[in-house]
């Protein structure tokens, strides 16, 4: 069993070694459930999302929740201070988290957060980008691909228009950089999934 659960959606990376794994997992679940519910509430407000079949809504949310959370909580990773803030509000230094076993995933998340912040998106742009991220999540479980792709195209077009209005000479570069964030998020999602799979629960 592992002694640490290094995820900022937890209250702390430290786990009581005397607690049964099931209890640790349930507490972790209680910690991140509100954030997942917020992602669902956000998804419901994306124009056109509720018109997709329930199966496809669930598929996109299952595939894209981590990616949306990564974007929404990017500011928890503070590169200037070299810290990560957990849900309890307590900050842990990157050095501490690395000593607890956090490796490539933490480094990649930090790099992603820093580059996203550098794009200086306003609130509307960030919201639209987050919608694009969700609808662009892995489509392998989707039944009605045409509907999802039509919604994806519509949202990407809207994001392009918004960025073109706001970023002057850097508009095209900013938009391209945003689109390149999608495969980066997919890669982070895959790394995160591997971490989850390696975390075994023994009831």
């Amino acid at each position: 069993s592992r002694a640490y659960l290094v995820c900022p959606m937890n209250t702390s990376p430290y786990v009581d070694p005397n607690k049964p794994s099931q209890e640790i997992w349930e507490e972790f679940s209680m910690s991140f459930t509100p954030a997942v519910r917020e992602v669902v509430e956000f998804a419901k407000k994306i124009p056109g999302f509720r018109d997709l079949s329930e199966h496809d809504q669930v598929s996109l949310l299952k595939a894209g929740t981590f990616e949306v959370l990564m974007v929404r909580f990017a500011s928890l990773f503070n590169m200037a201070e070299q810290t990560v803030t957990f849900l309890s509000g307590k900050q842990y230094s990157l050095g501490t988290l690395r000593s607890l076993g956090a490796g490539e995933l933490l480094n990649s998340m930090c790099e992603f957060s820093e580059k996203l912040a550098a794009l200086r998106l306003n609130q509307d742009e960030m919201s639209l980008f987050t919608a694009v991220v969700l609808v662009s999540a892995d489509h392998s479980g989707i039944q009605n691909l045409n509907s999802v792709e039509a919604l994806q195209d519509k949202l990407i077009w809207a994001l392009r228009n918004l960025v073109m209005q706001n970023h002057g000479d850097e508009s095209a570069t900013t938009f391209t950089k945003l689109l390149l964030k999608l495969p980066e998020l997919r890669s982070l999602n895959n790394m995160h999934s591997e971490e989850l799979l390696s975390f075994k629960v023994h009831p």
């Binding site: 679940s29 991140f32 459930t33 997942v36 519910r37 669902v40 509430e41 419901k44 509720r50 329930e54 809504q57 669930v58 949310l61 299952k62 595939a63 929740t65 995160h192 999934s193 989850l196 799979l197 629960v201």
Partner: peptide, 27 residues
């Protein structure tokens, strides 16, 4: 296939949150 989303109970949380909206709809 071991699905991380199911491991976490993610699908259950997602379904409940989606269904919540249906319950709030007036008849």
């Amino acid at each position: 296939y071991n699905d991380p989303a199911s491991n976490l109970g993610l699908e259950d949380i997602i379904r409940k949150a989606l269904m919540g909206n249906l319950e709030e709809r007036p008849d």
